[in-house]
Simulated assay, not measured.
Amino acid sequence: MQKITFILGMAGVIIGMIILSTTNPQHFASIYDTIAAEYGSPKYHEVIELAREAGYVTEGWNWISTLGLTPSIAWAITYGFAIGYIGGEVKRPERNILLAQILAALIPTIFCVWNGYVMTYNIGYEFTEASAYIDNEGPEWYTMPFPPTWANYAAILTDNILLKFLIGFKFIAFDYYWIPFSYIVFARVLFAQAMDNIGPRWFIDLNPRFGTPVKLYFLQWILGQATIVHYCLYPEVLGGLSVTGLDALTVWAIIGISCMLFPYVKKVRTIWEASPHNWKIGKIPVAVIAGILSIVMAGIVIWSVYASPAMGGLNIYWTPIYFGAGFAGVIWYLFWRWKRAKEGIDVTLAFKELPPE
């Protein structure tokens, strides 16, 4: 089922991108204007002028806008680390885990570059900026029956119902794909914590019939339903790209610092030396270089989240979440270390050896 979902989803992406690659701004504008006239919405060039008046259309390329796009790009290309959650079930993990992470960054990068090119040159640079304005601000004058996304722009360029369906179905396919992925990640993180004695022991209870942590799945279902209800009542608090800021702090920044220090910390020197990937460029460990790049990227993401005008309202809610998540994680660890110490268990021993995979 995963393969079928992935194939159909990618088919929609590729079809949409090919359609966009075969048009030009004049042809797209003529089709867009026809639909705009039908729904009483501003036409192609009128949209650009309205967005320009709002300050969203810039004159040419600039670093601020380019780096400001980093959270979106990071959201697309940096989740290769998810392979780590099934690392123990991967054949030849010393090769395939690293390869999967590289491909998970490389393939989305190719599509991001492709999409950036066609939106700039085939749809129009200024119209793309105007589309971002519509998407972020939702002006009342925009009355088209679809959001201003690249996929919808591709769909209006074809009369083939099957192609339209596949372009639209990709959203459904990848949203569905996210569900089992989320259940795997959530359950395995908590399961792993409990295995290391950092969490209640019912986290590792396996259902005798299904052989899976059903209690954790049920917990995630409850939290998921609560989140959906909260979103329906308070949609303005939706995290969106703000979640990428949390990823930058909790994943890329922390891992980057860890990578930089890993080869030089005496307590874990044996783990570094036993790793099959303790490569060096000259005398500098590759882990140090990767760690520096990870920290730089995390810094750019955080800067972008706070520098973008469209993120201003969200930051009111999410800045406390950033600090709260970090504080809660520290308290969680310290509590369970204290509790297990009272039981005669040293939880720090789990971090002094390589995992089996």
Rank of each mutant, 00 (worst) to 15 (best):
L261F: 15
L162F: 13
A253C: 12
G344K: 09
L293M: 12
I86N: 11
L216G: 06
M260I: 13
E49F: 04
D346E: 08
E343Y: 09
H45E: 15
N115I: 12
K283H: 14
Y322V: 02
E126G: 01
V330Q: 04
G326M: 06
D33S: 07
P213H: 03
Q225M: 15
K170H: 11
I18T: 11
F323S: 00
K170W: 06
A307N: 08
P148A: 02
F28N: 01
N152R: 02
W252L: 15
Y125L: 01
N152K: 03
A274D: 12
K91Y: 07
K266C: 04
S242P: 01
L334S: 10
R337I: 02
R52I: 10
R209F: 10
P139A: 08
P276M: 09
R188H: 11
M10S: 13
L354I: 10
E59K: 11
E353D: 12
A29W: 07
A11F: 12
T244R: 06
L190C: 05
F169V: 05
A132V: 12
I7R: 07
L190T: 03
I204P: 14
V90H: 05
N62Y: 01
E353W: 05
E353L: 09
N136R: 15
Y133A: 04
M297V: 14
A155S: 15
P42V: 06
L233P: 02
Y217C: 10
E140M: 09
N115V: 11
A341P: 00
N24W: 03
I321K: 01
V13R: 07
L241P: 05
W178L: 13
I107Q: 02
Y39F: 15
T78C: 14
A310H: 11
Y183T: 03
F111Y: 11
N96T: 13
L162N: 07
N62L: 01
A154L: 00
M144F: 02
T109C: 11
T143I: 06
I167K: 07
F210Y: 14
I228W: 02
G199D: 07
P235F: 13
Y176W: 14
Y306L: 06
W75V: 05
Y56Q: 08
V13M: 02
T109M: 05
R188D: 00
Y217N: 09
E273I: 05
V243T: 09
G245L: 00
A287N: 15
I110P: 00
G68A: 06
C112K: 10
D346T: 01
I295C: 14
T78S: 15
M1F: 14
V118P: 05
K43S: 11
T270H: 15
K91V: 09
C259H: 12
A104S: 11
E273D: 15
G326N: 07
I289M: 05
Q220G: 09
F111E: 00
C232I: 12
A100S: 14
K3Y: 09
L99V: 13
V214Y: 00
A307E: 10
W336A: 01
T149Q: 03
M144L: 13
S72M: 14
T319W: 10
F351R: 10
W338V: 07
D247L: 13
Y85H: 05
F186Q: 04
E89T: 11
